[in-house]
Structures are given as C-alpha cells and as structure tokens.
Design a binder for these strands. Structure first.
Lengths: 204, 204
DNA sequence: TGTTCAACTAAACACTGTTCAGTAAATTTA
DNA sequence: TAAATTTACTGAACAGTGTTTAGTTGAACA
C-alpha cells in the first residue's frame, strides 16, 4: 500500500511549508526577526516541530539561501540572452548581480554576508550552490580571455577580482557604509563604478 | 575642592575599563560571545552598571570600533613612509588594509560588516572615523590622478571602486565564501588579485 | 547629625535557540 | 477486532541574550 509513500509526501510537504514560511518572514522582516518561534507561530505548530525537519536554524537557513541561489542563477542566465560580445556579457551579468542585490537585500545578505548558511556545511563537502553560481562567472570570463577582450589572462585571478569588486560594492551598500559617500546619488555612483571597472578591464 | 573633578575622572576611568574589557573579550572570542553579562562578569560589576556608561550594546561597540579605526588609520599612515611614487603608495596602502583585516579579523568585521556600530549613528550626523579613513584613500588617489598615474580620472568613482574591491576581497574571506576557490592557496590568490588590480589601474 | 544624591545592583521582562519527556493518534501485528 | 508498536507532535524547561526598574548603600553636603 502507498501509506509510506503518502507519509513521505506529507513529510516533504511539511518541510516545504516550514521552508516557505521561514523565507517569507525572513524576506519581510530580516534574518534577526525570523526566529524559530515566529516561524512556528505562523504555521501553527510548536517550535520543537521544526527540529524534526531541520537539524538547527543554520540548516534551515542554508535551505533558504539555496532558493536565493536558484533565483540568482536564473536571473544571471536569462540576463545574457542574445548577447554575443563577451565584454557586454560580463557587463550585463555584473548589473544583473547588482540588481538582484538591490531587489533582494535580505537574501543577498544571507547568501554572501551572514555566517549562518556556511556553518551548516560539513568540513568535508562543498558550497555547491555557491560554486554553481561562480561557474557562470567563470564561463563569461573564459569567453573574455579566449577572445582577448580582457586585460587579465588568469581565469582565477580575474574571477576573484571581479566578484570581490561587485560584492564589495553591494555589501558596503547593504551594510550602510556608503552613507553620504561623495556628493551625489550613491546608487548612481555605484553604477558608474561598475561601468568604469568594465572600461578598465577592456583591452585597448 | 576637587571632588567633582575626581568623580569625573573616576567616571572616565570606569568607561575606559568597560571599553577595554569589551574590546578584549570581543577580540578573543568574537562579537557574539562579547555579551553584556560576560563583560560585566570580567570587571566584577553587575550588567546594569554598563548601561550607566553606555546607552546600549550598539553604542558600546561603536566605541570599540572607533579604536579599530585609530589603529587602521595609524597603520595606513605609517605604511607609506618614504614612498614617493603614487602608484606604489596606493599598492602599499592596499596591502596595509589587507594586512589589518587578516591580523584583526573580528575588528575588521565590526568596522565594515556588522550592523551594530552603524545603528548607533544618529540620522543627522556622520560616520566620522569612517570618513577620516576614506580621506587617506582619497589623498592617495588624488595624487595618482594629479600625476596621471591612474586610468581613472574621477576621484569618487576611483575611491568607491578601489575600496569596494579591497573590501570585497577581505570580507568574502572573513565570511568564509572563498572555501576552495581555485586550486592553490586562497591567500596568495588574493594577493595576486591586488597586484593584478594595481596593474589594471596603472596608466600605460 | 540628618539629608541629599549618585553609584550600583537584584530581579524581572521579553526575548532567543534548543532539548527532552510525555501524549495521542495512526499503523502494524497477533 | 484487540493489543502492541511506531510516529508526529508538544509543553515545559534549560541556558542564554539585551534591557529596565525599583530599591539599597555609602559618600558628600548642609
């Protein structure tokens, strides 16, 4: 009989329910406010129940941050549709990354700033969704190198440099370190910085 | 009589004692572990006493993060002693910044990643120590621009780009996002990225 | 000497993540 | 069908967090 199958389905459903509720509260009110009790309250279960589906808060928010990567990877993939010039591809992916951060600041924070999700990765294995995302960057940079479009020849140095630049820009903004930086609009200065960096990277 | 003067001295002394103890625990065991109760325990006062000297934990850790900036500003100032070439000055300051982050990861985290210190800055006024630190960067970049040594001509764009790059590099490392990035040593890859960026910035 | 005032604290409040013994219902076995 | 077992769930507790408040104690002043 399909009782064990139904039970398995129920279990997955419950897990998803917790996950979606965690994500909801977290996106609306931030990581701090997304407490186990707040999540339990909304799904009308006791806090202890959550621990039957997730080892701890870190593991739950690891699962949440994975859904963030799914979204980012999708957007970074779709962004370059129809683009052939490698530099234009790099520029577009850069702006897609920045747009994601602006539109999902709490999720970006969880994915690239918070300690929580990284703490649930066992010493032996890898940050799979992170690596999957870097692959998109590697891909684009490799194309730039192959067509001699870029002034950096080492793939890993280029990837680390470009990602660091983008992350620095976005995370300093998210964590409020750009208060009154310069005179004009900070967001515009950020966009200009990205464009300037592309110019710097371009060969000729 | 000097009673009120002595009382004022005592008050300042107590404030300093709290501040130094907070800093100690925080550097040794991180921000999470540096609780009001842990600080109170070590100085052998009740937790409530701390609130007679600091409005809340944010204000206390704003004061701690200020001592971090004093150190960073000192190191960034001393680093360039005897250097005349603007590009070399920029490079040296970059490495000094990175060295500070590596040697004082918890303090760097507090200064540039944590929300706590920024939350105690009133809407009206400015992040003074942050701005004082940027001035050193502006200074160096201005020299680069004046001598035509750099491929960026806008001071604010250059400052934002270079700071973002350095912060991205260092904060991704601190928050554990460089696990197994590439094949070799991550620290060396980071240093190579800084050197590569300097090459990119250099005119000719 | 009595009064005032400042420094300090015990205890509580409202939270947090997490664990565990116990319950109740669904499922399986006899 | 009745009894035994397994599963899902929870109340209550533990140990911690930042913060507030009423109340105490000792020093300074009148």
């Amino acid at each position: 009989m399909g009782i064990i199958e139904r039970k398995e389905r129920d279990k997955q459903e419950m897990r998803l329910k917790i996950l979606e509720t965690a994500q909801q509260i977290f996106i609306e009110e931030g990581f701090e406010k997304a407490s186990i009790r707040a999540i339990a309250d909304r799904i009308e279960y006791s806090p202890a129940t959550i621990y039957l589906y997730f080892k701890d808060k870190n593991e739950l928010f690891f699962a949440v941050h994975e859904t963030g990567f799914e979204k980012l990877i999708l957007e970074m993939t779709n962004a370059i549709e129809g683009i052939t010039d490698p530099i234009e591809e790099l520029r577009t992916r850069g702006f897609a990354y920045m747009k994601f951060a602006f539109q999902n600041p709490e999720m970006y924070d969880l994915m690239f700033i918070q300690n929580a999700p990284m703490e649930s990765i066992k010493e032996s294995d890898i940050w799979a969704c992170g690596h999957q995302c870097f692959m998109l960057l590697f891909e684009t940079i490799q194309r730039c190198i192959d067509t001699n479009a870029i002034r950096i020849t080492d793939l890993h140095i280029a990837a680390m440099s470009i990602w660091s630049f983008m992350h620095g820009l976005v995370s300093l903004k998210i964590r409020n370190r750009f208060q009154k930086f310069g005179e004009g609009d900070v967001d515009e200065l950020m966009r200009n910085s990205v464009d300037q960096m592309i110019q710097l990277l371009k060969n000729e």
